[in-house]
Design a protein around this nucleic acid. Sequence first.
DNA 1: CTCCTAAACAGGAATTATTCTTAATAAACT
DNA 2: AGTTTATTAAGAATAATTCCTGTTTAGGAG
Lengths: 143, 143
Amino acid sequence: MSVQDIIVKLKEHGYKITPQRQEIVNVMAQENRHMTVDDIHGKISARFPNLSVDTVYRNVGVLEQLNMLDRTDFGDGIGRYKLVEDGGHRHHLICLKCGCSEEVDFCPLDYIDQQQIRDKNFAIARHNFEIFGYCARCSKKEE
Amino acid sequence: MSVQDIIVKLKEHGYKITPQRQEIVNVMAQENRHMTVDDIHGKISARFPNLSVDTVYRNVGVLEQLNMLDRTDFGDGIGRYKLVEDGGHRHHLICLKCGCSEEVDFCPLDYIDQQQIRDKNFAIARHNFEIFGYCARCSKKEE
DNA sequence: CTCCTAAACAGGAATTATTCTTAATAAACT
DNA sequence: AGTTTATTAAGAATAATTCCTGTTTAGGAG
């Protein structure tokens, strides 16, 4: 999803485009990896010294609600955010060391037996699927 | 995994069996659902008024390390724990309302194209796969 | 262009899950 | 029974996230 598309979608939903919001989207599009709120805030506050963390939280919240951003937990309870890719829903290989992520062209819901879920009368709302490990660069360093 | 098996495995790894540890395992086996530390602590402190939350954290930590317990995040950054089922690794349908969970007989790693991951030189350490939604009972209540 | 209003903001306080510290306790082995 | 070492309780410390309040501003209307 391009920065432009995101801005358009925000406007469509009645959100104002502030410099802070714009910059948060810019940085996330540029970095294109799972970032903590602190990561995002750090990147931006170099240039905008008084961006509040609350603003970052508020904005990732908005982006998440509009399905333009995924929240992931590496297992430590800290939220990590990444803009969704073009074409919607994707899953990722996530490096536990550097936090980089690569798309993987696979969604388990396409393979699971949907019937067994319907049989249980379970109404699916959403799902998580993340594969954690070490990317090529970081595995090298470990050796 | 039965309570007995868990106790044996703890002993094998040199952990002592204290009443607190025993009781935490009992409650989790009995409830058999994703519980927060607060849930667990609440259940037990009725009978053991001075169980500290730290003890609960410490013990779920131990159980997690020995792969006898899964930590899951419903999306709010709060850890939820559940003993793993007999036969090892499983995935779950998790009710966002009541926290109950049902096993689903499917692991995405059995279906994903492993070659594409090897090609990226990515070393898999672990993975998450959870399906969130509303169980039969809770969907009824929503209507 | 100027005015108006709702949304967004900064700053800091409050909240809350989790971890840490320390001294006391107790499991398990000899 | 005595010793060792892990474990515990209690509360303080830490840190992510949310809340509060007063101020600013984006974007539409006149």
